[in-house]
Each structure stands twice: as C-alpha cells, then as structure tokens.
C-alpha cells in the first residue's frame, strides 16, 4: 500500500505544481509552483526505484535524484535572480503585464 501512497503523493505534488504555475499571475508564485512540480517528479522517480527493489538502495536512482536536486538548486538561483531583475526593470511581477515576448 505504501507504494501507492508514494506515487499518489508525487502525482498530487505534480498536479499542484502545474496548477499553480498555470493559474497564478504572480511570477514568484509561478516559480514556487515549478519548484513543487520538480519536487513531485523527484519523489516519483525515487519511489519508483523503491517500488522496484523494495528498499531505498538503488544507487542509480538516488544519484540521479541528487543530481536533479542540485540542478534544482541552481535553477532557484537563476530564477530568483531573473525575477528580481524583472521586478527592478518593470516594477511588477504580473505576468499578464509582462508580454514583451509577443510580437
């Protein structure tokens, strides 16, 4: 049963992440949503390894997830820096206003 609970937790986390990222208007909140999504994916990955072997000892899954977490950390750094710069430049974080990419 624990297997399903793990998978469901990660699915819920991914769902929350995508929901947040697609409905919120504040760039910072979207960013938090993406982070939750990434956490869900990581959890999913490691729980699949757990389900397969029955113990948390699969080095491959662990190492990939650790790498992923590290990259996430970098992502946070870059993302927050960009968010900060966006705020300094445009004075807002509302993504409906930030539509410069459009032609």
């Amino acid at each position: 049963m624990i297997e399903y609970s793990l998978l469901i937790t990660s699915a819920v986390l991914v769902g929350i992440g995508i929901y947040m990222a697609s409905t919120k208007k504040n760039l910072l909140k979207i960013f938090i949503g993406i982070e939750i999504l990434a956490t869900g994916v990581n959890l999913n990955f490691i729980s699949l390894a757990f389900i397969k072997y029955g113990e948390l000892s699969d080095a491959l899954a662990n190492s990939i997830v650790i790498t992923s977490i590290v990259i996430d950390g970098v992502l946070v750094g870059v993302g927050l820096a960009l968010t900060l710069l966006v705020y300094r430049r445009y004075g807002t974080l509302n993504v409906d206003v930030l539509r410069k990419l459009r032609w």
Binding site: I18, S22, V95, L98, R99, K100, L101, W103
Partner: peptide, 10 residues
C-alpha cells in the same frame, strides 16, 4: 507566441 504564460503552462 501569445505572451501569456498561462497558455504555455496549459
């Protein structure tokens, strides 16, 4: 591009 982040997320 539409420029709307929400559409990209969907």
């Amino acid at each position: 591009q539409t420029g709307l982040l929400r559409i990209n997320m969907s």
